[in-house]
Write a protein that binds this DNA or RNA. Structure first.
Lengths: 332, 332
DNA sequence: TTGTAAGCGTTATCAG
DNA sequence: CTGATAACGCTTACAA
């Protein structure tokens, strides 16, 4: 319905204060060239009438909305909400609003979201989506919208990016394990979990091939309960292994299933969580993990975008390295 | 800079297609009364020029933005992001965009956020903030913005609400424990954690007083690590107790500290997590908790708002009851 | 079926 | 220092 009708407009304020539109506009924008007297008069009627400028009209007139579009996957993961948290903090410090665009793990929808970002007239966008290709991201920048792509290596005039360094570290971890460890390694393949996991899986495979080691790929659902049950089955026949799981929940599923099957950690079963969060430290045994501070990534992304919009982003591509945190689920 | 300058406008499309503004507008809005021929002609030039309508201008002209404002606390808790997730899903199904406004646990800032919601010209708002009083929420509705308040009992013409039922259940749990349990109960008081926890704490206290039982209030930080260390100290002198903690992380801190102090769960120490999430089931021993499906709350809130905006919200107030889930950290 | 023109609530460029 | 007035990009009666 007419929910935003009968809103007080700048026009009514002007009339009530006995000045012109222009003067009111000057007051609310803190322009100089306004007598203290008129300013006070205007401010009084503003608060008397409860006038709030329409950000919409302002945006239309000025060509800047102070809105930042944020594209994130729909999945409700802790590391995503950590990043979102970093984004909101940094946005607030800079006076930006955040418009949220969520995408499923499905390319078509991601492109839809892109289109919405464009039509929504944001001043800039931060795109964290595992499905979008370089060309899709490029498209938005052809609309003159400055973009920071997270987990997507792509730069151009109006595009910067933050990439994650997982492969090197993983390779190091594996190679080091090959020298001292003796268990067979398994990678938990999650269907449709996006390019990040796929890339890590590829790295896992090639490292094994390069070292001429055998390995296993285990398909699993992206759910704690389902994975727990699957591993209860699995451990009926297999009694040891080193498992790499996407997230802490999945790692916990393996750990719990192993213990409930009478296996010891890390003697029989070792587990590494790829995208570790604070829960890796809360769950017992504490979970060894690869870690990236996603909240920091969020803050950093917003800062880069801010610089990019101001035309003074010097380093268009930064890489955030993950670190290995040894805890109780691995021997080293 | 001029990031949204040299954007293709409806005017250019009209000229290029050899029709008027109005016709282009009709095409993009799927109005009938357009020849198939002209429609095709227009659509072709639209895609040729890569034209995207400006949601801003549309909103200004139609008085509806399809934007929903969401006010949530800045705190990065799982249950909050669960709710946000439910909101985004339901919003997407209805074609709304979400504008995010985060607040610290600080009233002034919350009011600031309220003002931004008003100026940002959203079609409606969902407010989940523990600091805002009834009057603050009322204020926004005086701007004709339909609002659903979460965890705030307040209704009026344009305001509906969802409240949480924790007190009754807690009272039942406590009274039942009084008959069979023998440990002293402690409530973890978290400073500035908002009204929800304060209300629950009050309920905890009065139930004890009514039953003429002694109890303890323990101040703690809203941090796993700090709380863990505090309880390592605590358990040096106190060897048993039934502890009620705000969230799973805090409950886990107590559990881990108890075990690391050689205490048995639930024989010596019992723990109840007040706002349980899926982690209550992942952590071992699994944590008994009170549970509300926050994702559902989010979806429900969006549905109510949608109805409210359409003027057909019949039940302006709904109460979501929490349920007790007995797991391994309590005897019953 | 299509075009003309007024209006949405601001800002910004001019004169005065 | 202040006031007209033209944008901003779109929708929508009203005319044609």
């Amino acid at each position: 319905m007419d929910n935003i009708k009968d809103r007080v407009t700048i026009y009514e304020v002007a009339k009530a204060a006995g000045v012109s539109l222009a003067t009111v506009s000057r007051v609310i924008n803190n322009h100089k060239n306004v007598t203290l007297e008129t300013r006070k008069k205007v401010e009084d009627t503003i608060s008397r009438l409860g006038y709030k400028p329409s950000a919409l009209a302002q945006a239309l007139a000025t060509n800047r909305s102070t809105n930042i579009g944020v594209v994130i996957p729909r999945a409700n993961y802790v590391y995503i909400s950590n990043m979102l948290n970093g984004l909101t903090e940094a946005a607030r410090d800079r006076g930006y609003m955040l418009s949220l665009f969520v995408t499923s793990h499905n390319k078509e929808e991601a492109i839809q979201a892109m289109n919405k970002v464009i039509t929504s007239h944001v001043d800039g966008a931060i795109i964290f989506d595992d499905e979008l290709d370089v060309e899709d991201t490029q498209k938005i920048s052809s609309y003159q919208v400055p973009v920071i792509a997270v987990n997507n290596k792509i730069t151009s005039d109006k595009v910067g990016c933050i990439t994650f360094g997982y492969e090197h570290l993983l390779r190091d971890i594996l190679n080091s394990y090959f020298t001292s460890g003796e268990k067979k390694m398994y990678f938990l393949h999650v269907h449709n979990a996006g390019r990040l996991l796929a890339r890590i899986e590829r790295s896992f495979v090639t490292t094994h091939i390069d070292a001429n080691k055998s390995y296993g790929i285990l398909s699993c659902d992206d759910s704690y309960t389902k994975t727990y049950l699957d591993f209860i089955e699995f451990f009926k026949t297999t009694k040891s292994g080193y498992f790499l799981a996407y997230r802490d929940s999945l790692a916990a599923a393996i750990i719990n299933a192993a213990r409930d099957s009478g296996l010891r950690i890390p003697e029989d079963v070792e587990v590494l969580s790829i995208i570790g969060t604070k829960y890796a430290n809360i769950i017992r045994p504490t979970i060894s993990s690869m870690y990236i501070d996603m909240q920091l990534v969020g803050r950093k992304a917003m800062q880069m975008l801010s610089d990019l919009m101001a035309g003074k982003l010097s380093q268009k591509q930064i890489k955030v390295e993950s670190t290995f945190i040894k805890r109780d689920t691995t021997k080293e």
